[in-house]
């Protein structure tokens, strides 16, 4: 089936809505909009410019995300588009939407527990670790197994009550 050609330019809200259906390749429960990876959507003349930012410098999903966004928009008939990578300001978990946090938890990943602009690391090193609630049974009787999980953005925890291991989405 030939792709439909857009005759009237779709609104930016409409485009953001479409991007809300593009799942993150590594955490498919949330969209690239939920995670705050899409920083800007603008028309530049006839060209649509979508600015995205990597969560972590080495995140291997960044190029897949760019590809998925491009594919989704082309399927909607947008031919003339450019994906721009933006490094600054650096991505922060504060940009994860409330809906995104809810979806993460429902998926079994504990959402970020504090605002990223918290204590500086030297202070953080010397204080008690955060209590992270188990996303399954909500128990606060949990322990951190490792500062890193299945992707750079997560840490590994285990719940002492329901005994399930789970991922925690770190604050950065």
């Amino acid at each position: 089936m030939p792709m439909t050609t857009v005759t009237t330019r779709p609104s930016l809200d409409e485009i953001r809505g479409w991007l809300g259906d593009v799942p993150d390749p590594e955490v498919p429960a949330v969209s690239v909009m939920d995670l705050g990876i899409v920083r800007d959507v603008q028309w530049s003349g006839d060209e649509l410019v979508v600015a995205i930012t990597p969560t972590y410098s080495g995140c291997p999903a960044t190029s897949v995300i760019a590809f998925d966004i491009e594919t989704a928009l082309r399927q909607r008939g947008i031919e003339n588009l450019r994906i721009e990578r933006r490094l600054s300001p650096p991505w922060t978990t504060d940009w994860v939407t409330e809906e995104g946090k809810r979806r993460l938890e429902a998926y079994g990943i504990a959402p970020p527990a504090e605002e990223a602009g918290g204590p500086s690391p030297f202070e953080r090193l010397l204080r008690k670790p955060l209590v992270i609630a188990c996303p399954r049974c909500k128990s606060e009787n949990t322990r951190r197994i490792s500062e890193f999980g299945s992707t750079p953005c997560k840490a590994q925890y285990q719940c002492h009550d329901c005994l399930e291991p789970f991922d925690y989405f770190k604050c950065i």
């Binding site: 410098s57 650096p90 690391p121 500062e147 890193f148």
Partner: peptide
């Protein structure tokens, strides 16, 4: 140099976790 400042700001967030972990 704003290019240096931007990369440093990005890297700093990651290195914070590296430091926390190696110290532990």
């Amino acid at each position: 140099d704003s290019r240096i400042a931007e990369i440093a700001a990005k890297g700093l967030k990651e290195v914070t976790y590296h430091l926390e972990r190696s110290r532990e």
